[in-house]
């Protein structure tokens, strides 16, 4: 109202020419290094290792807290003697068996849930019941049912993987856009073809989430099972390696074992799954 009565003239500005000091300039080497996440994290790791070394030396009690260099030495000699690689391979073989079995059962359950309402109800109820139950809590029961040995461990691994994968896959199928489903049904595919070529790739972002969560559960469960119930079999995996060395008070070896567990977990979570993600979900622009 008031503004209409104020007379504002048109204004024209001169655009700055050459006097702008930086229009475009490459970053300095230092800026570029600092921008690189991997470099920053490596520096952090080196600093942490230094703190570890200094603290352990000051403490001077290798039974409680060995130095970083001792741990590295133990790690190297355990690798050279093949003790650690064998333990890791054993753990890995168990993990793969349990993981694949879990995936297979999750597949069956999801397929059942996708074709019938009862199946969907069953999946949701079972997931609600069992998902909050830490897998390791089932180990005592599994030991009674299946005895000491791999079967018990695989049983808890299946439990660790199954619910996360089944639930995520199923909700991925559900969330798939109705348009895409209609397009898929228009192609004259068989029902298996429809699941394999439309539903699974369409739900892949949530399936991948399920796989990651399932992996994380399984890995932690497995190490815990080996550690606490390491007795379960004569030859042992990584958890067993840690457990044994603790019994013999070989603390640097304990640290080396733990380090291996960390490194392996990092490898799968940050390299294997990241690569899969980059090759699929990100390439397709489906990353959420």
């Amino acid at each position: 109202m008031v503004s209409t009565s104020i007379d504002r003239p048109d204004v024209f500005h001169d655009i700055a020419g050459t006097e702008i000091d930086v229009v475009e300039r490459p970053l300095t080497a230092w800026q570029r290094i600092y921008d690189n996440g991997a470099v920053r994290k490596t520096v952090l790791l080196v600093v942490l290792a230094l703190i570890w070394e200094v603290y352990a030396r000051a403490l001077g009690n290798p039974l409680l807290f060995p130095t970083f260099t001792d741990t590295l030495a133990a790690l190297l000699s355990a690798i050279v003697s093949l003790e650690l690689p064998e333990a890791a391979a054993y753990t890995l073989s168990l993990l793969i068996k349990g993981y694949l079995a879990g995936l297979a059962i999750a597949g069956v359950l999801t397929a059942f849930a996708s074709v019938s309402r009862i199946g969907a109800d069953l999946l949701q109820t079972l997931t609600a019941m069992f998902n909050p139950l830490p897998s390791i809590a089932l180990l005592p029961l599994a030991l009674i049912w299946f005895g000491l040995g791999d079967a018990s461990v695989i049983f808890v691994l299946i439990h660790a993987v199954l619910w996360a994968v089944a639930l995520n896959t199923f909700s991925g199928f559900r969330a798939l856009s109705p348009t895409l489903k209609m397009v898929g049904r228009n192609y004259g595919l068989s029902s298996t073809g429809y699941i394999v070529w439309i539903l699974i790739p369409g739900a892949f972002p949530s399936i991948l989430t399920g796989l990651k969560v399932g992996w994380a559960f399984a890995w932690r469960t497995l190490i815990a099972a080996e550690l606490v119930f390491g007795v379960s079999s004569g030859s042992g995996g990584l958890g067993w390696y840690v457990f044994e060395n603790k019994n013999q008070l070989l603390i640097p070896e304990v640290f080396a074992g733990l380090l291996t567990v960390i490194l392996f977990g990092l490898f799968v979570e940050n390299i294997v799954f990241k690569t899969i993600e980059a090759k699929t979900v990100q390439r397709w622009g489906m990353a959420s």
């Binding site: 856009s177 348009t179 895409l180 397009v183 790739p201 369409g202 892949f204 397709w284 622009g285 489906m286």
Partner: peptide
């Protein structure tokens, strides 16, 4: 041919 842009298979 639908109205929605998400009718192509993203993968």
């Amino acid at each position: 041919v639908f109205q929605e842009f998400d009718q192509l298979l993203p993968w």
